[in-house]
Nucleic acid binder design. Structure first.
Lengths: 347, 347
DNA sequence: CTGAAAGCGCTTACAG
DNA sequence: CTGAAAGCGCTTACAG
C-alpha cells in the first residue's frame, strides 16, 4: 500500500491548535471545562484539517460506542424488511447501525459464523447485536437479540406467532373445503419452521384429518431446495388440492412448478405461503399468505436491544408478535371430486 | 453498564497457555516460527476460553483490515440489489463487508453524513469504501468508489449508461406513436438523474418534438415527492399520452395516481420507468422500464474497489455499464386522437 | 522459537 | 482550565 495519504489524527489537530490532545478530545466530545477561546481554536483546526475522529480508536477506548450491530448471513427480501424496521427504531435514538454480512462461502466454512462475528464486534465496536435467522445459538458478553431465533436457544429473541399463523392458514384451507392438504417445511433448526409445522399438524388433527406422510416435504425456506419436494407433491396421480408452504419463497417456487405442470391456481390447486413478502402481493394471482410483519419484528427487536443496553441485568426476553392471514387469489374451494390435478396442456 | 462480563483477550489466552501475548497473536494469525507444541497449547486455550480476536483492536494496529465498507443513507429496493452484487463480489475474496446505515433524521442533520462516516471508518476499520447514491462529494485517504455518483464529482465511480437508457425508453414511446410525452425527473445532484433527463430531451429533440414545459415534473426518485407532480401531469384537460419517469419507484407511484384518476394503462396512458426493480415485473400490467442491472453495478463497483486497494496509485476510474430496455405491458400505442385522458369512472 | 516493548488513535482519571 | 500519562486489545519489529 504505497500511496496512503496519512490520516488526520487528534495529534495533528492539537499541533495546529497549539493545545494537547486531551483538550482536542474534550472539544470533540463537548466536555465541560474548556475555555471558549481555546475551543474555538480547536474547532478551527478541525475544520481546516477536515478531522474526523476514528470510530475504531474511540470504541477501543470507551465502553460505550453507541453503535448497534446487525449480523446476517445474506440479504434476502425478509432480511431487508427486518432491517428497515431496525433502521426506523434506531433513527433518532443516538445509535448508529452497522450491518455485518457474511462474506464466506456457504457450507462448512461458515459454521459458527454468527458467533465469530458477534465475538469480534461485541465488547469493542458495538454495544449490542441483533442476529437475523441464525443457524446456531450465539453467546456474547454484550446484549444480543435474535430475530426469528433457532429452536430452544437460550437467547433474547423476537419472533412471530408462527404456530398461530400456521393454524390460521390451514383453517382457511379447511373452511374452503380442502381435506387433502400438502405441506412444505422450512429450515428445521429455526423455531419458526418448527412452530409452523406444529400449527399445520395441530390444525389438521383438530379437524380430524389424518395427514398423508407423502404429502409432507421440506424446502429449508429457499427456492433451490423447494423444487424437488414441490415436484414430488404435484407430479403424481393423487396430488393434494392445496399446499401450505412454510414461507413465501417456497410458495412462489411451488407456484412456478404448478404452472409448469399445467395446474391452474386457484381452480386446480390452492397455495398458502407465510411471511407476506412484497412479491406475494405482486404475482398473479396474489399469494394468500400469513403476514408476520417483518418490519415490526425488526423494530421491536431493536427496541428490545436498546432497552437491554440501558439495563443489562434482565432475565431472558422473548417477544412473540401477532401474525395475520392475508387472503388473496391463490386460494379457492377445491375442484369437484374426480377433477383434481392439472388440466391437460392446451395446444 | 453494570453486568458486563469481561471480554476474553489475548492476555487471558496467554495466561492459560503460559506463553506471551505475542505468541498468542502469532498463532491466531498463522505466523511462521511457532513451536508446534506451543501452538497446540495456545489453540487449546483459545478453544477453552472461547477467544475471538477483537476486530477493532486488530484494525487499529494493522494497516490492512480486509474489511470493505458500504455506506448508504437508507435501504430501498435499489440499494439492496446493489448490495447483493457487492456481496457476490466480496464472497470468497477474503474480505468482509460492513454496511453503515445513516441513523440520523433526514434533512439538515444528515448534511455531509457520507463524509463523516467514511472518515470515521476509513483508515482504520475499512480498507476502502463504497458509497451508494451519495448526496455530496466525499474524499478519503483510502480507496473509495461511488455507485451512481453525484454529478461532476471527482471520485471513482460506477454508474449505468443512463443517457443511452433514457434514449431507448423515449424512442420506444416515439416508435409506438406517442408525441405528447411527459417526464418526471430524479434527484438532480445525481449524475444519473441529469443523464436521464438529458436523454429524454435529446431523444425528443431528435424527433423534432418541442417539449411542453408543463409536462416536466420532478419527484427526486422517491414516491413521496412524486405524488404532486404525477397529479399535475395527469389531472388536467390535456394530459400526455405517455410519461417517462426517471426511476421505477416514481413510475409505480405514477401508476397508482393514474389508476386513481381512472386511467387505463396502457390503453389511455403509457408509462416507462427506469431501474427494473423487482416490483416492476410484478405489477399488473408489468412496467416497461430500463434495466440498469443494479446487481451488476454493485458487483463491478466492489471489484473496482478491490483493485484500487491492491493498487492505489491509479487515476480516477469511471465505469459506465450498459442499460437495456425491458418492454412489458405498461406501454402501447397512444389512444386515437380525441380520446386521450381517463375514462369516466364506472359505477 | 519466544518475550518485552512500542505504538495504532483515542479517552479519562489524575495532577497542577 | 489544561496537560502528561495510562491504557483499550491488538501486531510487529527488535532482542535474545
Amino acid at each position: 500500500l504505497s500511496a496512503l495519504k496519512p490520516t488526520v489524527t487528534v495529534r495533528d489537530v492539537a499541533r495546529v491548535a497549539n493545545v494537547s490532545i486531551a483538550t482536542v478530545s474534550r472539544v470533540v466530545n463537548d466536555r465541560y471545562g474548556v475555555n471558549e477561546g481555546t475551543a474555538a481554536r480547536v474547532r478551527a483546526a478541525i475544520e481546516e484539517l477536515g478531522y474526523e475522529s476514528s470510530l475504531v480508536a474511540r470504541s477501543l477506548r470507551s465502553r460505550r460506542t453507541h453503535v448497534l450491530g446487525f449480523v446476517t448471513l445474506e440479504f434476502v427480501s425478509w432480511t431487508t424488511e427486518v432491517l428497515q424496521g431496525v433502521t426506523e427504531a434506531v433513527r433518532g435514538s443516538g445509535y448508529d447501525l452497522i450491518v455485518y454480512v457474511n462474506s464466506e462461502v456457504h457450507g462448512k466454512a461458515s459454521e459458527g459464523w454468527e458467533q465469530r462475528q458477534v465475538s469480534s464486534l461485541s465488547g469493542t465496536l458495538t454495544d449490542g447485536c441483533l442476529i437475523a435467522a441464525p443457524w446456531t445459538e450465539v453467546r456474547s458478553n454484550r446484549p444480543l437479540v435474535a430475530v426469528d431465533p433457532i429452536h430452544d436457544a437460550q437467547m433474547n429473541a423476537v419472533g412471530a406467532e408462527n404456530r398461530q399463523g400456521a393454524i390460521l392458514a390451514v383453517e382457511h384451507l379447511l373452511a374452503l373445503g380442502h381435506r387433502r392438504i400438502g405441506f412444505i417445511g422450512g429450515r428445521s433448526v429455526l423455531a419458526s419452521a418448527r412452530a409452523r409445522e406444529q400449527g399445520f399438524t395441530q390444525a389438521m388433527k383438530k379437524a380430524g384429518i389424518e395427514v398423508d406422510p407423502s404429502l409432507l416435504g421440506r424446502g429449508d425456506f429457499v427456492p433451490q431446495e423447494t423444487l424437488e419436494p414441490a415436484r414430488a407433491l404435484l407430479d403424481r396421480a393423487d396430488p393434494p388440492t392445496a399446499v401450505f408452504a412454510a414461507n413465501d419463497e417456497m410458495a412462489l417456487e411451488l407456484l412456478k412448478v404448478a404452472e409448469h405442470l399445467g395446474y391452474r391456481v386457484p381452480e386446480d390447486l390452492s397455495v398458502v405461503g407465510f411471511d407476506n413478502v412484497p412479491a406475494a402481493a405482486m404475482v398473479t394471482p396474489g399469494l394468500t399468505t400469513v403476514d408476520q410483519h417483518p418490519r415490526h419484528l425488526g423494530y421491536e427487536a431493536a427496541q428490545l436491544l436498546l432497552r437491554l443496553i440501558e439495563q443489562p441485568d434482565q432475565d431472558q426476553q422473548r417477544l412473540s408478535l401477532p401474525t395475520e392471514l392475508v387472503v388473496r387469489g391463490s386460494t379457492a374451494p377445491p375442484p369437484r371430486v374426480g377433477t383434481a390435478g392439472p388440466r391437460p396442456m392446451e395446444e
